[in-house]
C-alpha cells in the first residue's frame, strides 16, 4: 500500500486525510468517553469535588469482597485445569494422532458457536445435581468456565505450538533418553512458555468478566455482585468495575509486553561452527 499511497494525487490525498482524521477522532470519542466517564463517576464527590470515597467504601461491602475473592479463585482454578487438560492433549495429538487434530480443534472452538446463555440451560440441571450431591461451592463454576475459555486458550496454545517443531524436538529428546514426562516438562513447555502465559492471562480476563453463567446458576461472582451493588450504591459499584478494568488492562499490557519481547537468543549450533571459520579468513 505504501507505493499506492504515494501515487494518490494531491487533492485525493487531502480528502483522504480529512476522512481519516474525522473517522479516528469520532472513534476515539465513542470508545474513550464511556471509559473515562466511569473514572469520573467513581471519583465524584457530593459537591462537585474529586474524592476517592467510593473507592474506600469498597471494603465496607463484605459481599463484594467475597465475590472478588471468589472470582480470583475461579480464575486461578480455571487456568490450571485448562492448562492441564489442553497442553498435554494438544502436544499428544500433534505427536501421535494428527488425524484427530481436526476433531480436537472442532471441539475446542465449539463453545464459540454456542451462546453462553444456551449452554447455561444445559448446565442448570447438572449444577443442581452437583449442588446436592457433591458441593454447592461457587468454585464448582470453574468446571463450566474451562469450557468457556477453551476456544481462546486453544488458539493461543496452537499458535505457540505452531511456532516450534514439536515432533522433531520430542524425537530428538526421546533419542537422547528422555521419557514422555521429560519431553513435556523440559522440552515442550519451556518452548511454548509465552503461549502458556498468553492462554493463562486470557482465561483470567474471561473468568473475571463472566456474568451469564454465574447469574443464571445463582452464584455471586464479581460481575453478578457488581449488578446487585450497582442498584444500591452505583458509585462503589462503578469503582469496582473500574478496578477490574484496570486489572484486565494490566494483564493486557503484560500480554503485549510478552508478545513484543524478542525470543531468547538460542545459540544456533550451525552458526557457532561457522563463525570461527569466517573470522579466520579475514
Amino acid at each position: 500500500m505504501a507505493v499506492a499511497a504515494r501515487s494518490i494525487h494531491g487533492t485525493r490525498r487531502l480528502k483522504l486525510q480529512v476522512f481519516r482524521t474525522v473517522v479516528f477522532v469520532a472513534a476515539a470519542v465513542f470508545f474513550l468517553v464511556p471509559i473515562g466517564a466511569m473514572v469520573e463517576f467513581s471519583t465524584r464527590g457530593n459537591s462537585g469535588q474529586r474524592t476517592l470515597e467510593y473507592w474506600k467504601e469498597i471494603l465496607a461491602y463484605p459481599d463484594m469482597v467475597q465475590a472478588i475473592v471468589a472470582s480470583l479463585e475461579l480464575a486461578a482454578i480455571t487456568s490450571v485445569v485448562m492448562l492441564v487438560l489442553l497442553v498435554p492433549t494438544m502436544v499428544w495429538v500433534r505427536l501421535k494422532l494428527p488425524r484427530l487434530s481436526r476433531i480436537v480443534e472442532f471441539v475446542c472452538l465449539l463453545p464459540l458457536t454456542i451462546p453462553a446463555i444456551v449452554l447455561v440451560v444445559g448446565l442448570f440441571p447438572m449444577y443442581i445435581w452437583l449442588g446436592t450431591n457433591v458441593s454447592d461451592s461457587i468454585l464448582t463454576l470453574a468446571l463450566a468456565y474451562v469450557v468457556l475459555v477453551l476456544p481462546y486458550c486453544y488458539r493461543a496454545l496452537d499458535a505457540g505450538l505452531g511456532g516450534i517443531d514439536v515432533k522433531t524436538l520430542s524425537e530428538a529428546a526421546r533419542s537422547l533418553g528422555a521419557n514422555w514426562l521429560d519431553v513435556m516438562w523440559r522440552i515442550i513447555v519451556p518452548n511454548i512458555s509465552n503461549a502458556i502465559l498468553n492462554a493463562t492471562l486470557l482465561s483470567v480476563a474471561l473468568v473475571l468478566g463472566e456474568y451469564t453463567i454465574a447469574n443464571n446458576l445463582l452464584y455471586n461472582n464479581l460481575q453478578v455482585e457488581l449488578v446487585h451493588l450497582g442498584r444500591a450504591n452505583a458509585g462503589v459499584s462503578i469503582a469496582v468495575a473500574v478496578a477490574s478494568l484496570l486489572f484486565a488492562f494490566v494483564l493486557l499490557v503484560v500480554l503485549a509486553f510478552i508478545g513484543a519481547r524478542p525470543r531468547r537468543m538460542h545459540r544456533d549450533p550451525v552458526a557457532m561452527l561457522a563463525s570461527p571459520a569466517v573470522s579466520s579468513q579475514k
Binding site: 487438560l85 489442553l86 498435554p88 492433549t89 499428544w92 495429538v93 501421535k96 494422532l97 484427530l100 480436537v104 471441539v107 465449539l110 463453545p111 454456542i114 444456551v118 449452554l119 440451560v121 444445559g122 448446565l123 440441571p125 447438572m126 468446571l143 463450566a144 474451562v146 469450557v147 477453551l150
Partner: peptide
C-alpha cells in the same frame, strides 16, 4: 494405545459441552 492420551480431554468436553447440549 495412543488414543488413550486424548481420553481425559474428550471426557471433559463430553461432560461439560456435549452433556449440556444433549440435555437441552
Amino acid at each position: 494405545l495412543d488414543w488413550i492420551g486424548v481420553v481425559p480431554f474428550l471426557a471433559y468436553a463430553g461432560l461439560f459441552l456435549l452433556l449440556p447440549s444433549t440435555i437441552i
